[in-house]
Design a protein around this nucleic acid. Sequence first.
DNA 1: TCCTGTTGTTGAACCGGTTCGATAGTCGTG
DNA 2: CACGACTATCGAACCGGTTCAACAACAGGA
Lengths: 340, 340
Amino acid sequence: MATIGDVAREAGVSRSTASYALSGKRPISEEVRRRVLAAAEALAYTPNAGARALATSQTKVLGLLAQFHEDEFAPAMMQYILGVTDTARDLGYDTLLVTEADGARALRRITDSRMVDGVVLMNIAQEDSRLPILRAAPQPGALVGLPGDCSGLDVFDLDFEEAGRVMVDHLHRLGHRELILISQPEHVVERGGAYVWRLRDAALERARQRGVTLHAVYGESRQPAVGRLLNGLLDAYPAATGLLINNEAAAAALPSVTYARGLRVPEDLSVIGRYSAEFAATFSLPYSFIESAPDRLGSMAVRQLVRRVESPAARNEPFVVRFISPELVSFGSTAPPRPR
Amino acid sequence: MATIGDVAREAGVSRSTASYALSGKRPISEEVRRRVLAAAEALAYTPNAGARALATSQTKVLGLLAQFHEDEFAPAMMQYILGVTDTARDLGYDTLLVTEADGARALRRITDSRMVDGVVLMNIAQEDSRLPILRAAPQPGALVGLPGDCSGLDVFDLDFEEAGRVMVDHLHRLGHRELILISQPEHVVERGGAYVWRLRDAALERARQRGVTLHAVYGESRQPAVGRLLNGLLDAYPAATGLLINNEAAAAALPSVTYARGLRVPEDLSVIGRYSAEFAATFSLPYSFIESAPDRLGSMAVRQLVRRVESPAARNEPFVVRFISPELVSFGSTAPPRPR
DNA sequence: TCCTGTTGTTGAACCGGTTCGATAGTCGTG
DNA sequence: CACGACTATCGAACCGGTTCAACAACAGGA
């Protein structure tokens, strides 16, 4: 491969002149600039990333730490990842995807070795062992997901509390008085997935305020367990006329369940989900849903991260915690209740 | 951050001695080795990745090029990606995930700049513009998916031909004589997704040999189109007693369709799919299926890639094209036919 | 004509590792 | 006791970029 030395020799100038001609960081005569560019072109010169990183302390790579737990819904993760990689590339960065089980060790590895200019963390837990490491790291970071302690971090997440309230209010306004909320599996909560109870607790609170009965249960992440669970719930609460689903697997399984039971949506049962538009489209879910906008969140996190990476001024700005407000996308799966 | 110079000073030795003590590439006295390790520990020394890459021409990073087209099934991709990242990490490599639309340019960028020691390509098209670049690149590469011309490349893929034959044979043995095969959308084929017609043509051929009528149609990737399509097919071919599905979205949509039509599986209709076990589990698909083993394919590709990266001898071995044979996982969704 | 300022270019140093060749020190051997 | 062999360590060079300080050439002004 051609080095900048080769380009310089070919153009008949010094290495430094070649460097300046290519970067434009110093004035170079039109004549020389043309010769250098022509030489670079002729030799198919591409700067060596390692050498550049060493010289500039910039790698133009961002780290993306994602964790895949058995009981979480892997396909949903894809949208977050694409939001990050696509935006990063638009801004001139590549993405190092790290899925190591030991996230803290992985984070330490990529930051200490200076492989990345910044990091995006996903699957944030309430008490996340990666956060102290991130705070101490020389590179800035951004979180997709809300931890217990946000200090010193930029955080982006869906407003799950508001999502819970919107769901309850929507069905309450239609006249429903008894609802079921099916959340993620309990394991997710135990592992620190705070978003589960953020939505749940806000929904319960709002239901109490409105005088609505809300049966809140943990879900399952797999079939056939989740199908059995749904059936069990519909059996257990025959008076419930509305179903809130904060659980992709349950949403995916619901159509089969309602068909099997001869339930019509929304005539017999009103349904609201919470997932991404992509997920809804792919699985055809015919339910109104709160859009969780994973790609937008990933994109926002990267933009803020890159701002901090590139501007010393931005690095000293106060940290932000930004929630995107839940948007209810209607597919007509809710209606005034009729007793089941 | 501490450099190896700091470690050397702390241990009272030269930089080279510190380097040898840490790498073990030359004999170092027990005493000095201990001092160096202690110093490294005390200073939390981690080698700078850029500097090491520059010195050794090894980045310990693999590139993973994946493309996400609108009409393909994104969630399925996740399993491939995890197969690659997890195996790479086991072997000591990190993964640069590149999802750029212009794959050829992206490949050139990461190979020319020496950001990666090797590359895994996914979403291989029949005529893939990335392949000439990969062949000319100094780094080895591996493909997940079969292109028209495999020369000079290691290729890993499911044996889609055999998958088509297995599906047809299985239903033929049970006594079925009229089948429907629903494939991926036609766009996927137009873009060069050869696996679609590899399965389809082999199934058609085998059906001909067996005297079975096979209606082969292109599918859709989204709802509600795919649901409409399924209904249309069942209307159009009322005598068909078996359904072969090489299309994740169609498989996900089928339960609703059969419920709505009052069709029972397998009593009224035998069904065989082709997707990953993970996909089957997540969506509870109650169908027997050919396991497409994306994680295994990703893992195999990485192992071979790393062999070539690390051993000069392996780099000269002949290239391999390896198919994994389709395994039929039974969920009891097939039975001898009864007229619908 | 001399001084000052501007513009374009250069050599050298540096980033932080690895590795080669040389050397000092130790030991066994003839 | 001299010699060679071997071991442990060191200094220097190198990987391929970027950047700083210095300088040459030339213009304009006094």
